[in-house]
Design a protein around this nucleic acid. Structure first.
Length: 580
RNA sequence: GCGCCCAUAGCUCAGGGGAUAGAGCAUCUGCCUUCUAAGCAGGUGGUCGGAGGUUCGAAUCCUCCUGGGCGCGCCA
């Protein structure tokens, strides 16, 4: 079910008939005010000039041609030429009865399906994951899940930063002396310490800097000792990252780091030079964009004067391989918005190279803003250091523990610990996802861990309450409730309003997939929760005096709400709990 | 210097050229002998940074200004 899409199609047909237009835009959307009905058609107004008509008369003409096949009550014309649509409760009851207990809440897979690559998370080797990786990981994971739910063939690729000049420094430092025990106990801590030590020394001494460069060239030349060290660093880093991914319940279909593309880089650059696309300048090789309005003065460096390659080169090689392996319709890069320029350059280079022409595949940079502390400055520890992801999740869990302990006193310590972890991580994820991705977001423990308001815990609780209601039926009536199989005879306005909300999920997910903005799903789920609370307040369910048929209807609606939350939370990858 | 992004209620933020700009939090008033009050109903609170322009219609599009953030060839 795609309610908006369905109504739009019918409205467009009527516009074609009424106005003789080929492909008119009904601009049908959810009504701005409940007094205007459920949906409104705004598309008549812009046509007034084009058709040289009075918008209200045009609206009348359209209304005469509209046929929603029973979905809507007779449309009304309002204001300068809006057409207000009220869904027929009987039709809504029929539709919601069909989808309420459906596994997918009636959201069909897209047809045709697409092949999509999502490039996200991308931690660096020898560095602990920190809050800077959080948004890419959470956003990317949610996008993968949403696109996959819609039926697309999605490859989530972790493009790990496992190659680059820093390894010369790290190897040099390692050889100077390392703490074998620490490397065992806290590998990433020791690697970070070694790197820091090495880069400090290299800054002080040109000799050291030169030695580090030599270690790097030995690594690049395939020196067995350095290669073994590099592999060890990569392995340790991967294990560390995996433990965080386990905690976040995030996984990847592919895990190809930058090093994977090393071998093809020289030939790629040579080819670009031969094609006249790249040329030498001041010793380096760069792609120049001629008189491109935005990039004319911004060359894209693909080889340094010392012969080393850059991430521009790797990204082009990566793109080429993805085209070959996946024949993608979309490639989505979930990377900090500060790298916008890089992606404009990359996508333009891809176009010039013939890798992406006429917008196929769609190359999309899903940029996101920074995580700020309450003071509005970049999020740091009290001492001004980087906050590691592990520490952030630990703190979330610790802060939540007393809250769940207070609310769920029957649970033992282990259960509470598990719950605190799931609520804490869900809260951190939700805080990140519920805001438009391009805006910087202000991290505030009090706000994001609150059990009231637009938060993760609130949504988790909404599902818990719905599930507990369905369980409670068994306790009170001695049997599982039987969902209504066919049409629901919706009587109360709150029942209809809730049912209409349930029919909207498919439209919302389509928009999330189109714009790559999970906050729309968050907004929807929060709105559904509020809608359900109103329903809950006005429409008693388990009370003995409620007739059986009414109870079954309301429980069926509740089951639909539970399903919507289950689907929504799973797409946001926020734990769905049985009780809390 | 050039470029990109941002400025909406006390705070944090939504807002697809369309009707009287919304939500959460905060604050104030009602509502728990009734399925979990983690809630519901309502009130207070706005020159949508400023000035022009386009349009039947602008928070939204264009220009300029102010204030803030970020980026701009050998890191990623």
């Amino acid at each position: 079910m795609r309610l908006n899409q369905h109504l739009t199609r019918l409205a467009r047909k009527a516009m074609q008939e009424a106005f003789g237009l080929e492909s008119p835009e009904p601009d049908l959307r959810v009504a701005t005010d409940p007094r205007f009905g459920d949906y409104q058609i705004n598309g008549v107004l812009p046509l007034a000039k084009q058709l040289k008509g009075n918008p209200r008369q045009l609206a009348e003409k359209l209304v005469a041609a509209l046929d929603f096949d029973g979905a809507c009550l007779p449309p009304e014309i309002a204001g300068p030429g809006f057409i207000n649509l009220r869904l027929d409760p009987a039709w809504v009851g029929q539709q919601v009865g069909r989808i309420a207990v459906d596994e997918r809440l009636g959201v069909e897979e897209q047809n045709p399906t697409q092949s999509i690559v999502v490039d996200f998370s991308s931690p660096n080797v020898a560095k602990r994951m920190h809050v800077g990786h959080l948004r890419s990981t959470i956003l990317g994971d949610s996008l993968v899940r949403t696109l996959r739910f819609l039926g697309h063939r999605v490859v989530g690729d972790n493009h790990v930063g496992d190659w680059g000049t820093q390894f010369g420094t790290l190897i040099w430092s390692f050889k100077q002396g390392h703490d074998a025990i620490l490397l065992e106990q806290d590998p990433l801590g020791e690697l970070e310490r070694l790197y820091k030590h090495g880069s400090e020394r290299a800054r002080e001494s040109a000799e050291v800097a030169e030695e580090a460069r030599q270690e790097l060239s030995r690594l690049q030349a395939g020196d067995p000792e350095n290669k073994a060290l590099w592999e060890r660093f990569v392995g340790l880093s991967r294990r560390d990252a995996e433990s965080l991914y386990d905690r976040l319940n995030v996984s990847f279909d592919s895990w190809k780091g930058e090093s994977h593309y090393n071998q093809v880089l020289p030939a790629l650059v040579e080819r670009m030079v031969a094609q006249g696309l790249a040329r030498e300048d001041q010793g380096a090789i760069a792609i120049f964009y001629g008189d491109h309005p935005e990039l004319g003065d911004k060359p894209f460096l693909v080889r340094k004067k010392d012969g080393a390659f850059l991430y521009a080169t790797t990204d082009l090689a990566t793109l080429e391989e993805r085209l070959e392996h996946y024949d993608p319709d979309r490639i989505i890069y979930v990377v900090d918005v500060r790298q916008s320029l890089h992606f404009v350059q990359l996508f333009e280079a891809a176009r010039l190279l013939g890798m992406a022409q006429n917008g196929h595949p769609r190359l999309e940079h899903v940029g996101f803003g920074m995580m700020l502390g309450q003071d509005g400055r970049p999020f740091k520890t009290r001492e001004g250091g980087t906050v590691t992801l592990a520490a952030l999740l630990d703190e979330a869990s610790e802060r939540v523990y007393p809250k769940v302990a207070e609310r769920y006193p029957e649970a033992n310590h282990d259960e509470l610990h598990r719950l605190a972890e799931q609520v804490g991580i869900g809260a951190v994820k939700y805080a990140d996802l519920c805001q438009h991705r391009t805006t910087d977001y202000r991290f505030d423990w009090e706000k994001l861990l609150a059990f009231e308001g637009n938060t993760g815990p609130y949504l988790q609780y909404s599902l818990v309450r719905t599930r507990s209601l369905l369980r409670e039926h068994l306790v009170r009536f001695g049997s599982e409730f039987e969902p209504v199989a066919g049409e629901l005879k919706l009587e109360e306005p709150e029942e209809k309003a809730l049912a209409v909300e349930l029919l909207r999920l498919g439209d919302v997910l389509d928009r999330v997939a189109e714009h790559l903005t999970p906050h729309l799903l968050c907004e929807y789920l929060f709105g559904l929760g509020r809608c359900y609370n109103v329903f809950w307040d006005r429409c008693p369910i388990l009370k003995v005096e409620i007739p059986d048929s009414v109870r079954r209807r309301r429980l069926t609606l509740s089951a639909g709400v539970a399903r919507a939350f289950e689907i929504g939370l799973s797409l946001l990858n926020i734990p769905a709990l049985e009780r809390m």
